[in-house]
Computed example of a mutant assay.
Amino acid sequence: MGAQLKVVVVGAGLSGLVAATELADAGVDVTVLDKGRSVGGRLATRRLADARLDHGAQFFTVRSPAFRRRVDDWVDRGLVAVWNHGFDADDGHPRYVGTAGMNSLAKDLAASAERAGATIMTSTLAFGLRPSPGDSPQHRWEVVIDDGSTLPTDAVIFTCPLAQTFALLADVGVWKSGDEATDAAHDAIVARLGIDLDQTLFRTQYDRTIALLATVDGPTAIPEPGGVQDGDDVFSFIGDNQAKGISSSPAVTFHANAEWSEAHWDDDADTTLAALEAAARPWLGDAQIIERQLKTWRFATPRTVWPDPCWTTADGTVVVAGDAFAGPRVEGAHNSGLAAAHSLLA
């Protein structure tokens, strides 16, 4: 495919930004859409007063040559640094973090994509996909925006959580799990678009995560190196952002585990905050909370992972990618975005 190829990428998380950068570098006309106010997805960082806290992905490791090349570039430019080599013992795999927070890596990718000619549109909700009208359309598809406007395109890469992708393709507003809803969504996509998505993709379930972000007035009781995985019955991860090297003042991220998050998902915010603060108390030592925020991730972690790095229609014009492919981690999301771009460039 030549330089006139037009591609729309839905989702400006890591997968979408990697795909957009790769395509733009190859001369493709790329537009990235994201409903959020800024890029990053799970590469999310929040400022509270003078503190900086990662509240999505906390760190990443490197196992593949493709991701190693990306990380080496980030290291050379001072964008990432090693936090530790294991939370309980040295396992030989460095845990990397963004030196200015994980979201800074998404911003770097977005800047690179834009320099190569990509257009990135945040606060823009992709509402649906439909075939281009007419007997001989110039482009294969139209992506419908929630304001009713459309973007003509030759191919589309979806990198948002799978349930959101299916709802968009099926034009059903919100996709709900369950056999009947799954079959209905599948049939709607086949009827409307001629796309026969694998049923296994439809049935992918995600764990939820509720996060407590807290700034504190002094050192905490979190042990070296400042991170704890599965530390108790409530928290799947606890991260001291100052020990991590991204915050100038003490600030802690608490991720509730999947079971706790599911059980408390429908609680009101004040009740949830009170419960999380009580659970966090043993990890804070003598430190007192100054400021707190609650964050929720509806589609935090896919429970099953598709073995291939992406899924592509037979004609190669619709690609589904993201962290449900090739591993639900930062590296998997990166490599899935790379594979999605290469599937269109082949």
Rank of each mutant, 00 (worst) to 15 (best):
A188H: 13
G245L: 05
A113Y: 04
A113T: 09
L79V: 03
A287N: 05
D268M: 08
A44C: 09
E331Y: 03
R298H: 12
V156P: 02
E224C: 00
G173I: 12
A66S: 15
I238E: 02
A167L: 07
F59V: 14
H334M: 01
D233W: 00
L17R: 11
D25E: 15
M121P: 00
A321I: 06
Q4K: 11
R37P: 06
A20V: 07
I210F: 02
G239F: 15
G41N: 03
R130K: 14
A300Q: 07
T21A: 10
D183M: 10
K176V: 13
Y206Q: 07
A118G: 10
G117T: 09
A66G: 11
E259Q: 14
Y206R: 05
A275V: 11
L109R: 11
L5V: 09
T119F: 01
A324P: 00
L201W: 10
I120F: 02
W83G: 00
N241C: 12
S247F: 04
S248P: 01
D34S: 07
V39I: 09
G332H: 06
T272H: 01
T61N: 14
P219Y: 00
G98L: 04
S343F: 05
A24K: 02
A118E: 11
A275C: 05
S149T: 15
A211E: 04
V10P: 05
H85Y: 15
Q199T: 13
Q205E: 15
G2I: 02
F67G: 08
V234W: 02
G13C: 08
H264I: 01
L201M: 13
S236I: 12
V32D: 09
R46Q: 14
V252P: 04
A214N: 05
A100W: 12
E277M: 13
D72R: 14
G11L: 05
A300P: 00
N335K: 04
A287Q: 08
P225M: 11
P282S: 06
L33Y: 02
F202Q: 03
P328K: 02
P309L: 12
V318C: 08
L193C: 06
W141I: 08
R140N: 12
